[in-house]
Design a protein around this nucleic acid. Structure first.
Lengths: 102, 102
DNA sequence: ATTGATACCTCGGTTTACGATGTATAGCGT
DNA sequence: ACGCTATACATCGTAAACCGAGGTATCAAT
């Protein structure tokens, strides 16, 4: 999928990936891979960004000798998802316009 | 609408705006404004980009003393629209994923 | 004469996806 | 013992692209 098209949706995808159950970086990538491909460098950048924005909180744990950071969505993060859904109507209007009069 | 969300769709919007009838910069902005807001600086950047990519061709004319550059879509530009429509399924999958299990 | 609409364009800032690269542990096959 | 793969984190530099601010110019209306 085109990199430009991902902008604006990747953030929300990551939030959606942790919405129902806390998750960690490596697992988020695996879970999202059937839906959207994203690299590790991109994911960790997004996670840092969302944390700074207060849309998720981090809890560092140790799992089988390896560091594992669990991410938990905040109310602000949930709101971000709702905002995106409200914006979806506009996206659909754009699609209708593009497909008009073939 | 969020600037990031526009990426990847604005190009196609501009192509769609000239798809059925040749148009010029100022008019394209007016025609698109109900669908997507975009600034002049953005539009002219996009037009130059699409021209370089061979997706449209330009014809300069004079209209009531003012310069007016008409843009005409090429087969490659039409193909770009088709490609976008094929990518739409992936976008819908993303939306389904985000809305899943509320 | 001044304002607003029409019509074009450029520059710099900011955001963001991604490849390349680095660190470290655990487990498996040879 | 050694290498490879999977797991799991992180940083850096690059390129793409939207936009505000600013610039130029014509024409109509006040």
């Amino acid at each position: 999928m085109d990199a430009q098209l991902k902008r604006g949706v990747l953030d929300v995808c990551v939030l959606a990936a942790i919405k129902n159950e806390d998750s960690y970086g490596y697992k988020i990538i695996k879970d999202l891979s059937p839906i959207v491909e994203l690299s590790e460098s991109t994911l960790y950048t997004i996670l840092k960004r969302l944390e700074t924005a207060g849309m998720l909180v981090v809890r560092s744990t140790e799992f089988e000798g390896r560091l594992r950071k669990y991410y938990h969505i905040t109310p602000r993060g949930m709101q971000r998802i709702l905002d995106f859904k409200n914006e979806w109507k506009e996206i659909m209007d754009i699609y209708s316009f593009i497909g008009k009069e073939d």
